[in-house]
Write a protein that binds this DNA or RNA. Structure first.
Length: 400
DNA sequence: AGGTATTCACATGAAACTATTCTCTGAGTTAGG
DNA sequence: TAACTCAGAGAATAGTTTCATGTGAATACCTGT
């Protein structure tokens, strides 16, 4: 066995990888040249530029759907700007922070703590009053003459969890700072997010606004082509693969990230199969694999109670298409007793159902059946082919 | 027949509670001078 | 007396529970014809 393994690894190394630079297809990759976003880059650069003269740059709010290059444009511009600042010894600091990251920046405390950490202050993960952390942050910020720009990515997630006061406080902080100046760049995927914002917050955050339209198929194709040139040997991609990939992603609201992922996975599949070329078949397989993996991954990483509820739904969904909250809850309770799990209240289960819906594992719609009450109409939205696998996963998770 | 009042079966919201993780503080203890 | 230890108070957070209130439309119940 050991011999076999060794040969396997040796073979693996021997085998020429189809990729010359896989990094170029990963979403964290920042290419030197960004296509089809000149306008936005210029706009961002113009807005941020005053920072180099130690004037406060306007706050900026960017929005556009996922994979339209918002983060990329901002990071790219920020990088260039930092280079200039460093060269000239300008006290400019730019920090990028993704608010979606759990346990990092999804509450007021954590956001401020994280920002303070950027400024070189060690803040414990808990235990301190929020005011205290805020003070530390403020002191660190105002310690010297400087311009600081905070880039808050996926800011909608933060507001959803922690309210918009934080943003308001952050935008107002300038009036209290004596030496430093703060500019904020907010990035959001949610187009209607800014409408739900407190008007005061909205006006202070979006002194400038920038919309990122989705890429169209042609632009996607162009982007893909570039990245593939970096990532693969020339001629490795079968004719039409890029076009199809672009078309697929354009259908999904022009998401370049998905397109890149798709082609990367296609490449990996081809490589694993020992094929010399990436073909359309691989692409189709990749599309399916991504979808499958997403489901399995989501299911596997749910907390126990969620899994129990999901299992109850799957076990229930045998003879009819949809079920009501009450029915599911009863079955869930039975299941809990069977496996020795403390059953949650119906209130909570109702929320869990709503969350499973958000995750796209089930489909839950509130309907009114008149005299017979109001409930959610719950049905599974898993691909049928995956159900046995998921059932097994859940059995394992729940030790059934 | 047409109108309105009820009623069901939950949905949805808000507040309060629990458990866990973590810091800070100050009393008590220890050991060295 | 300085250094150390350790329990207790206080915070933040996630996950719930408790209590309260809301709700869409099928039906029951009237009403006047």
């Amino acid at each position: 066995m050991a011999d076999k393994l060794t040969t396997f690894f040796e073979d693996f190394l021997e085998k020429n990888s189809l990729f010359t630079n896989k990094k170029a297809l990963q979403s964290s990759f920042i290419p030197d040249e960004i296509r089809h976003r000149d306008e936005q880059i210029n706009a961002v650069a113009n807005i941020l530029a005053p920072g180099l003269r130690l004037e406060r740059p306007s706050n900026l709010f960017l929005y556009g759907k996922t994979g339209t290059g918002k983060t990329l444009v901002v990071r790219h511009t920020a990088k260039n700007m930092m280079e200039v600042a460093e060269e000239r010894g300008i006290p400019l600091k730019i920090f990028y922070l993704n608010c979606k990251l759990k346990k990092i920046a999804d509450t007021e405390y954590r956001l401020i703590a994280e920002l303070a950490r950027y400024l070189g202050k060690a803040i414990p993960p808990t235990g301190l009053p929020t005011d205290e952390v805020y003070n530390i942050f403020f002191q660190a910020l105002d310690k010297e003459q400087q311009v600081v720009i905070f880039i808050l990515d996926e800011i909608d997630q933060l507001v959803k969890k922690a309210g918009d006061e934080i943003i308001y406080n952050l935008t107002r902080i300038n009036s209290e700072l004596k030496h430093a100046q703060v500019g904020i760049i907010g990035i959001s995927n949610d187009l209607i997010f800014s409408n739900n914002l407190d008007p005061r917050v909205k006006s202070s955050l979006s002194e400038e606004e920038l919309v990122f339209p989705p890429y169209n198929a042609l632009q996607l194709q162009n982007i893909l082509q570039r990245r593939c040139n970096l990532a693969f040997e020339r001629g490795l991609l079968e004719e039409g693969v890029i076009a199809k990939c672009a078309a697929y992603a354009a259908r999904e609201h022009g998401d370049a990230r998905r397109a890149l992922e798709l082609i990367r996975v296609a490449g990996e599949l081809a490589e694993r199969a020992g094929d010399q070329k990436v073909t359309i078949t691989h692409l189709d397989a990749a599309e399916e694999k991504i979808e499958r993996d997403r489901f399995l991954d989501v299911v596997e990483h749910q907390p126990k109670q969620f899994q129990a509820v999901l299992y109850a739904i799957i076990a229930t969904s045998k003879d009819r298409a949809s079920y009501s909250t009450g029915e599911i809850y009863n079955n869930y309770k039975e299941l809990c007793i069977k496996i020795g799990l403390r059953p949650l209240t119906q209130r909570r289960v109702s929320d869990i159902i709503a969350e499973l819906d958000m995750l796209g594992l089930i489909n839950a719609k509130v309907i009114s059946k008149g005299r017979f009450g109001r409930t959610k109409e719950i049905m599974l939205s898993l691909p049928t082919s995956l159900i046995p696998k998921i059932t097994n996963l859940l059995r394992e998770g729940l030790s059934l």
